[in-house]
Design a protein around this nucleic acid. Structure first.
Lengths: 259, 259
DNA sequence: TGACGTCACTTGTCCTTACGAGTTACGACT
DNA sequence: AGTCGTAACTCGTAAGGACAAGTGACGTCA
């Protein structure tokens, strides 16, 4: 009978006790926790209190609960997929990227027309309500089973210059880059990484467990004069994937104060 | 009296109704939701059911609840801080990085000795249980109020070569890079980005709201022969910060199959 | 031996009741 | 007029009971 002490609410004390037991290894990763009834007896509290404590540990991502079976300690393994966010240009004018496996379309791509929002406009350096072509894909990695949502957004202005981009919705990003390069652009890219909790539709589409954030990668393809040409977005469960970048020290002349 | 329909549990239907009202703009960002008592009346359910629905919306990061005041629609603004993960080398041998503001130490750095775990060993290409020097800092950005946890891990082997690294725990990363470059290394960096829910101590240290993941950046400094010299880790709330990278197309000769 | 139904376990849902604790506004008292 | 206490709101915590629903094992029956 391990009685509980100080800090805060009862259910928090119970949660802390269980968390402690998990982190010290009393409950190994993957193992089954005591049932709610057993925890009620162990700590001398009612079932709502036990459930409240378990809900807290769930929100922390420490445990997984399965209806009819019990609560299991989540194994905090590393992400199975490392997204190498690099781009290589071959002398014949094509582009290649790692992680080609991920580009397996799990559903038919859907194309549409939309307008810039505040967020996408900021990334593309466009005003709000500018017309865009969009294409959404649901991707699946056959090796790991990871799923991802991919979105391509192309401003009308750019699409008029390179109409093939819109005519063929199945275009792979590498092919897009090639078309833009053939159009005379010198390409470079910037990518921003954000994380947030998924919306319900993202949870189901990506088959995410509880308390799992998503990585949200936004890649801008810049053309000549750093003009923003294309916005690509990739959303993927943070439990399954990590993003990897190379950083090179760009050499710059020493600054001198102007007088 | 807006009665509720189909899918799943009562509290999920209530949650869906409220979520719908938020996303359609009936409840604007920042505005006050009806109180629990009002929601009980509006949907004809008991208080636990209402609270269960609200807990679901909380876990999604859609709303913030304040004791004694009510539930507020969270405004989904962009992160205030963009971490530009670039490194610039000046001709005089020093290195500079953007976001210097973030390097304001909120507490005294703490140094210690530890050993590689499975995760850190993988990143540093070392076996497990290799000896490391560590230094932890809590950083604060004066502009945005964002907080971050910074950690530097240096293998013993590297520290023996450049002892200044360990003697002066307050060393800024840019100064570390300079010391390594002066030691004859040609530096390059790789950085991997992960996201996960915070542990309780991270939640309090970073002052994170509910349902807020953290971005976990791991930067490896590579020396000559791509040897891993230093591991830096930065943890910061994903509501306050995003990470930005540049991607350059590295040119490679076309591959030919070897016979 | 195989198939299937039942039962004992698990967690999920929902209700009622009660009180504690933070917040705010109003009104009475000084 | 200013101060302060109280009342009325808010959400937080905790208990109790009841039944639904998923899971797996066991035993019975064909």
């Amino acid at each position: 009978m391990s009685e509980i002490q100080r800090p805060g609410a009862l259910y928090q004390q119970v949660a802390a006790a269980i968390r402690e037991a998990i982190l010290t290894g009393e409950f190994a990763p993957g193992s089954l926790l005591p049932s709610e009834a057993q925890l009620m007896g162990r700590y001398g509290v009612s079932r709502p209190t036990v459930r409240n404590a378990i809900a807290a540990l769930r929100a922390e991502g420490l445990i997984d609960v399965r209806h009819g079976k019990g609560s299991f300690v989540r194994s905090d393994g590393q992400p199975a997929l490392t997204l190498e966010r690099r781009i290589t240009r071959t002398p014949d004018g094509t582009f290649t990227m790692p992680n080609g496996d991920l580009w397996n379309v799990a559903e038919q791509p859907s194309t549409y027309r939309t307008r810039t929002t505040k967020a996408t406009g900021r990334l593309l350096h466009l005003d709000e309500e500018e017309a865009l072509f969009g294409c959404d894909r649901l991707l699946a990695d056959p090796g790991t089973g990871a799923r991802a949502m991919h979105r391509t957004l192309i401003p009308f202005e750019v699409a008029e210059t390179v109409p093939q981009l819109v005519e063929e919705p199945g275009t792979h990003p590498a092919a897009i880059y090639r078309l833009l390069a053939q159009d005379g652009h010198t390409l470079s890219w910037t990518e921003t990484v954000r994380a947030r909790m998924p919306l319900p539709d993202e949870r189901t589409a990506l088959q995410l467990p509880d308390a799992t954030p998503i990585l949200h990668l936004s890649r801008i393809t810049h053309g000549t004069d750093d003009r923003a040409l294309i916005l690509e977005e990739l959303r993927i469960g943070a439990d399954r994937a990590e993003a990897a970048y190379r950083i090179a020290a760009d050499k710059q002349p020493a600054r001198r104060a102007r007088t």
